[in-house]
């Protein structure tokens, strides 16, 4: 029974990955709209873009990790 609850928890934690995907998409979309408004400044901001994507994605990876821990380690 406990294992099944853990699996349900893992599934719920998996939702976090999808939400992180929303966050990453948001970062990229805003970068693109900004880049189209001012293309000359876009190239200098790609590093910032990737850092933002990395931070947004890290939280999704955390929830993925929580899911894995619930699945395999609890």
């Amino acid at each position: 029974m406990e294992g099944e609850i853990a699996h349900i928890g893992a599934g719920l934690a998996g939702l976090g990955c999808g939400l992180a995907a929303l966050g990453v998409g948001n970062v990229a979309a805003n970068y693109l709209s900004g880049a189209l408004r001012n293309p000359s400044a876009a190239a200098s901001q790609t590093a910032t873009l990737f850092i933002g994507i990395a931070f947004a994605e890290a939280l999704g990876i955390f929830s993925f990790l929580v899911a894995l821990l619930l699945m395999f380690a609890v």
């Binding site: 994605e57 890290a58 990876i61 955390f62």
Partner: peptide
């Protein structure tokens, strides 16, 4: 933590 888990998590996933 985020630095390491990001890399390993992405590849493992």
């Amino acid at each position: 933590v985020s630095h390491s888990v990001r890399l390993a998590g992405n590849l493992m996933a």
